[in-house]
Design a protein around this nucleic acid. Structure first.
Length: 491
RNA sequence: GGCCCGGUAGUCUAGCGGUUAUGACGCCUCCCUUUCAAGGAGGAGAUCACGAGUUCAAUUCUCGUCCGGGCUACCA
């Protein structure tokens, strides 16, 4: 059996969409599972929609996900070039060959006539499609057009009858009547090929064995099968992965934040979490498991596991995956990966010293189990990083724990004993706090809560004693003073 | 309108003629606990879209209906 060769063929018309990247992931997984090749081909045949920088972001998205390629626009390969805009001659030759063999013809119809034709068809509720006017043009008309240099497109001469059949790896036996297919355009008047043409020619020339692509291509697959037949080539295995839908059950629009793949990087999701999640969206191992390493997924990936129904993107589940992966991160990794987010929020300088790095590591250790995305780090940990006179007291927290009889007294007692504590560690700190409660004959919580608000400004967060330990003696005392001052000013 | 593909809890899914219909996310309760998380133990949630067939037996096979999605460009 021939070596598996698959491709991801983005068109540089915008930012990467999660559906496309998932398709790329499926291709890559299949290649790596089968020991085959995965290549990237840029389908830049639409000159009007080309977006500057789009190719770079596509490649960046794949790199971030950990998907690599064996051949592609940036690294070349034996089947290049990998830009369709650089393969124009190839398509032109094949188009001529198709015309010569009677499988294609030149069409001189104007855009205006085509528009009018469509309008007419829609009005009458007829199926839309080209009416084949140029298919059997008298020789003298053709000669005249050639003499006048009339612009033309090349159209595929669709068989007038018969049935096209093939087997889709996801949907099974497929059968279409050729009769309902119109003569689609192969070459545009600007000399560029259409998707159909470039795709079929390149997939054949690049020896692609499996075409794993989005479900939206299913209806044009019979055209492709017929083209392979006209060329005398065998077609690859077609694999149509279903679309990803939004919460409204509609195809995830590019406008939605969850659709734009790079948002996950920006928002602090870990690529390994996204990888795990995406592989399992529309594909299943058949096991009762949700957590898989990259290697385990490669090992299990196969075509029969592809699910034949569109999936709705569940952002809650992505967040859950991310939390699991963050909790599993070694501390140094977590600190390193969270650092840029802290810096972006202005909480850490651009060039932190060793002591600062060490401190951030200890902070992240305390926040690790409650962080869902790295982007949340600043808002969860800001009080650790802000100056002692800058961290913000939450209004409700102050209301609940500071506006009562004895609040300042509790803090003063705690402060006094903190000051004389010799070993600044969680155990000793706890002893003091509980000791104060005992002295005052109140529940520990009655002391714990105001102390937390005093030191962090809020009512929630990591364990109090660990928090105080990390904050350190000087900062803790300063903060207690600040809180006592605040309470006094309230009265 | 025409053609095509789907339809198992709110969501992702297992299932491939006979199961108490699988696991997970989310939701709820309890435990742990100084809070928030995390963790542990439970729970609610599915007439397997609906209606006919085939069969001793249908979530599983067939057909119809309904619903959802996709395509219907000199865009991919």
């Amino acid at each position: 059996m021939a070596k598996v060769r698959v491709r991801y063929a983005p068109s540089p018309t915008g930012k990467p969409h999660i559906g496309n990247i998932r398709t790329a992931l499926f291709n890559w997984l299949f290649a790596r599972h089968s020991g085959g090749d995965f290549l990237i081909r840029i389908e830049d045949t639409d000159r009007e929609r080309f977006v500057e920088g789009a190719i770079e972001t596509q490649l960046h998205a794949l790199k971030w996900l950990g998907v690599d390629w064996d051949e592609g626009p940036d690294i070349g390969g034996p089947f290049g070039p990998y830009y369709q805009s650089q393969r124009l001659e190839l398509y032109k030759e094949r188009a001529e060959a198709l015309i010569a063999s009677g499988h294609a013809y030149r069409c001189y119809c104007t855009k205006e006539r085509l528009d009018k034709l469509r309008e007419h068809q829609v009005e009458r509720g007829l199926p839309t499609g080209y009416d084949r006017r140029c298919r059997d043009l008298p020789a003298e008309d053709v000669a005249r057009h050639e003499a006048e240099g009339t612009p033309y497109v090349v159209r595929f001469a669709m068989p007038r009858e018969g049935t096209v059949t093939w087997t889709d790896a996801v949907f099974g036996e497929m059968s279409w009547e050729a009769r309902i297919l119109d003569d689609h355009v192969l070459m545009k008047s600007d000399g560029f090929p259409t998707y159909h043409m470039a795709n079929v020619v390149d997939d054949h020339l690049m020896e692609i064995t499996h075409v794993i692509r989005g479900e939206e291509w299913l209806p044009s697959t019979p055209r492709h099968v017929l083209m392979y037949q006209a060329f005398g080539w065998t077609h690859p295995v077609f694999v149509h992965a279903t679309n990803i839908l939004g919460k409204d059950r509609r195809k995830l629009s590019k406008r939605e934040a969850s659709a734009e793949f790079l948002n996950y990087e920006r928002d602090g999701y870990l690529p390994e979490a996204i990888f795990n999640f995406m592989a399992l969206l529309g594909w299943s191992t058949g096991e009762d498991r949700d957590m898989y390493t990259r290697e385990e997924i490669i090992e299990r990936f196969d075509l029969p596991g592809l699910v034949g129904r569109p999936a709705i993107l569940d952002t809650d589940k992505i967040a859950w995956y991310n939390g699991v992966y963050i909790r599993a991160l070694p501390l140094t990794d977590l600190a390193r990966r969270g650092l840029p987010y802290l810096q972006a929020a202005g909480l850490v300088s651009g060039t932190p010293g060793d002591a600062e790095i060490d401190y951030i590591g200890r902070v992240m250790a305390l926040e690790q189990e409650r962080i869902k995305t790295l982007a949340e780090a600043p808002q969860l940990a800001d009080f650790f990083l802000l100056d002692d006179d800058k961290y913000v007291f939450d209004e409700k927290a102050v209301q609940k724990w500071f506006r009562n009889e004895g609040a300042a007294d509790k803090l003063r007692r705690v402060r006094e004993r903190f000051e004389s504590l010799s070993d600044w560690a969680a155990a000793g700190l706890e002893e003091i706090v509980r000791g104060v409660a005992e002295t005052l004959e109140i529940k520990p919580a009655e002391v714990i809560h105001p102390v937390r608000v005093a030191l962090t400004g809020r009512t929630f967060g990591p364990g109090l004693y660990e928090t105080i330990e990390v904050l350190g003696r000087d900062r803790s005392l300063r903060r207690l003073d600040r809180a006592i001052g605040l309470i006094d000013s309230l009265v």
